[in-house]
Simulated scan of single mutants.
Amino acid sequence: MTANQSPRWLRYLAIITVIGTYTMLIMGAIVSKTESGRGCGSSWPFCHGQLIPETLPLETVIEYSHRIVSGGVGFLILLLTIFSWMLYKQNQKVKLLAGMSLFFVVLQGGLGALTVVFRGGLEQKAALALHFGFSLISFASVVLLTIYLFQLAKNKAFDRDLVHIPSGLKVATWGLTFYTYLVVYTGALVRHAEATMGCGYSFPACGVTYFPNLSSIAGIQMLHRYAAISLWLVTLWFLLVVIRKYMHRSDLVKGSIWAFVLITLQAISGIITIQLDGQVMAALVHTTIISIYFCILSYLCMQVGLPWRRSSK
C-alpha cells in the first residue's frame, strides 16, 4: 500500500485509541491514589463476583470503571492491530508498533488481575509498579503507531531520515529512554508504597538527612528524587548535544526541546505534589507529564532508528 492509499479512518481509529489508552492510564493512577484497588474484592473480571454489584461505594465505582474502560481500550487496540496488519502487511514498523501495543495492554491487564486476586506485601507493590510500566509502553506504542500512520499519509516516513545519524546518538537516545523507564518505576513504587509524603513537606532534603534508609518510605521517596534529578540533568545534556551537532535535523531538535520542557515541568509538578500533600489532581498532572515525556523520547528513538542498524551513507 502506498502512502496516498493510507485510509483516513484508520488514522481516526488510532487517535481514538490514543485517547482511550491515556484515559486507561489516568484511571489506573486514580485507582492507586485513592486506594481503590480492593474496591471489587478479590474477584476478577467481575466485581465481588457479580456483573453489576449490589452496592456501589466510591471505591467500587472507581475500580470497576477502570476495569470496564481497560476492557474497551483493549478491544480498540485489538481492532487497530488487526486493521494495521491487514493494510500494511509488508511494513515491519507498523506491524511491530501495533504488536507491541496489543502485547503490553494484554500483559498489563493480566498483571492487574493477579494483583487483585493475590494479596501480598512488597511483591504486590512491585507488581503494581510493573502494571503501570507496561501500560505506559502500550500507550507509547499506540502514540508512535499513530504518528507513523500520519507520516505515511504525508509521505514523510522514509529511510533517508536515518542518513547521518551516528551510532553514538542512537545509543544516547535509546539509553535516555531506557533510563527514563527505570525512573518511572521508582515513581510508581513511591505511589504504591504510599511514600509520597515520606519526607513530609521537606525538599530537597528529607528532614535533616539526605540519605534515609532505603527500606523506609522516606528512603523510597529520596530514591525517586535522586533518580528524577539525574534524569533532568541527563535530558539537559542530551538537548545541548542535539542542538550543537544536529541542528539540521529539525525533528530531533524539536523533540529534544520538548523533552527538556516536559521534564522540567515534571520536576515542578513533583514539588507541587509534595506541597499539596499528594492531592489526587496534582498526582494526575505528574503522571500525565511523565507519560507525554516518555512518548517524546520514544518518538526520538523511532526517528534515529535502532542502535545496531547502520545509517545510510
Rank of each mutant, 00 (worst) to 15 (best):
V234F: 14
V105R: 00
V190S: 04
T55Q: 09
G72P: 00
I82L: 15
V253M: 03
V190P: 01
R310I: 11
K154M: 11
K125N: 08
H286M: 10
V208P: 12
S256L: 01
I77D: 02
C301N: 01
I272S: 09
I82W: 05
G133E: 08
S101L: 03
I263H: 04
K95P: 05
Y12I: 15
T81E: 00
L144Y: 01
A157R: 02
A3E: 07
I52T: 09
G71K: 03
T288F: 11
A113E: 06
T209P: 04
Y201I: 15
P166W: 03
P53Q: 03
A282F: 01
M1R: 08
Q124G: 15
C199G: 06
P53I: 11
F83T: 10
V143T: 12
L214Y: 11
A29P: 06
T287C: 13
N4Q: 10
L122V: 15
G168H: 09
T115Q: 10
S135I: 06
L78N: 08
Q5T: 12
M86Y: 12
M197A: 11
L145T: 00
K93V: 14
H164V: 10
T209E: 08
S42L: 14
P307I: 05
G39P: 02
R119P: 00
A14Q: 04
L97M: 11
W237N: 03
I62Q: 03
V106W: 06
L87P: 05
T17V: 07
V105M: 06
I263M: 09
L111D: 12
E194D: 07
L114D: 12
A195P: 02
D161H: 04
V61P: 04
R249G: 09
S6L: 12
S135H: 11
Q5P: 03
L176C: 08
L239N: 04
L262E: 02
S135R: 05
I257M: 11
I289Q: 03
A227S: 12
V208W: 11
A126D: 02
Q266G: 10
